[in-house]
């Protein structure tokens, strides 16, 4: 025979979806938030984000090359870039470069490569990095610059974030403290202090819409998560006005960033629609509980990490609905 045919089992066609398409798709979805962060935090944002992305990519490459001695190039699949972006989005814009390096090392080294690289990590690497930094460097990690300082980096002027104000209202100052909160419009567009990526609610929602439209993610996690938060914070607000209203809760802190981009991380979220609903709702519940009754003003990162640990359990017990009627006996 002139040429040997290739033989393989069906299917013989592929949908042309790829890991890269999904990873870079999420990166594209982050672009509106990126632009907002650059607009509000200027050069500081640029330095933090660039450092974070480059450090993550570098550590993945270096660990693969020198520790795992694996010749396969994995940095092109986009997952390290995405981790870097998300880590950067979870940091304040005045964080020194050396701290960011430590965060990237923990995120990629401990959070991802220790477990075997892409697809094997039980916890969201970016959040592992962020929480490590939050516990190790609480002062640097909780001083947020005021929005609108274009040319400032570590020297930026800092102020209390909306979340801190909300916490203050609960812990003693009462309803009057809530009047210090920025207006709803400012919260929506992002003209207030906070981590880089979390300030602009509208930019994050645009990103979410893009991911849903391109079918990178399904609606289950963000909807169940945000829905739970709205319902619970609404009930709290009705019971006592020192708890801020649902729309303020929704648009402050890392809630939207977490709901749209961190909780929906493929690797660490459950596999079935039912499991995703449970997972999302549980994160929402934990976030509200931590924000309202916990010591930290922000509970999103912890809530997601806690539920990451439950993902294998959810996978074991939440099976998709099998095709077929149940035979009546």
């Amino acid at each position: 025979m002139a040429n040997k045919f290739i033989i393989s089992l069906s299917p013989h066609v592929h949908g042309n979806d790829s890991v890269q398409r999904n990873m870079y798709g999420v990166c594209i979805a982050l672009v509106p938030a990126l632009i907002c962060s650059l607009y509000y935090f200027g050069i500081g944002a640029a330095i933090v984000l660039a450092t974070s992305v480059l450090a993550c990519v570098f550590f993945e490459w270096a660990i693969n090359k020198f520790i795992l001695r694996n010749d396969k190039v994995t940095i092109t699949d986009g997952s390290a870039i995405l981790t870097g972006l998300l880590l950067g989005f979870n940091l304040p814009s005045n964080l020194p470069i050396w701290i960011i390096f430590i965060g990237a090392l923990v995120a990629i080294g401990v959070g991802k490569m220790t477990f075997g690289g892409l697809g094997c990590n039980p916890f969201n690497p970016a959040l592992v990095g962020r929480v490590f930094l939050l516990i190790s460097f609480p002062v640097q990690m909780t001083s947020w610059p005021v929005a609108g300082q274009w040319m400032a980096y570590t020297d930026a002027e800092t102020a209390a974030t909306p979340l801190a104000i909300m916490k203050k209202a609960i812990t003693g100052d009462g309803v009057e403290a809530l009047s210090e909160l920025p207006s709803s419009f400012d919260l929506l567009v992002g003209a207030h202090g906070g981590c880089l990526g979390e300030v602009s609610a509208i930019a994050l929602l645009i990103g979410l819409a893009y991911m849903l439209w391109t079918r990178i993610i399904t609606w289950h996690i963000p909807v169940s998560l945000l829905g739970t938060v709205v319902v619970l914070s609404g009930l709290l607000h009705l019971s006592n006005p020192i708890y801020s209203s649902p729309e303020q809760v929704l648009m402050t802190g890392g809630l939207l960033l977490g709901a749209c981009f961190m909780a929906t991380d493929y690797v660490t979220s459950p596999m079935t629609p039912k499991g995703q609903l449970i997972y999302g709702a549980s994160i929402g519940l934990l976030t509200v509980v931590i924000r309202t009754f916990g010591a930290y003003p922000e509970g999103m990162s912890f809530a997601i990490l806690i539920m990451n640990a439950f993902t294998p359990l959810i996978n074991t017990y939440c099976k998709p609905k099998r095709f077929g009627e149940v035979i009546k006996k």
């Binding site: 979806d17 999904n22 892409l118 697809g119 596999m271 998709p320 099998r322 095709f323």
Partner: peptide, 15 residues
């Protein structure tokens, strides 16, 4: 990457 797209695509509701 555990994206669960196969679970969503399976017409028999399998994993």
């Amino acid at each position: 990457i555990r994206c669960a797209k196969c679970v969503g695509a399976c017409p028999m509701g399998l994993e």
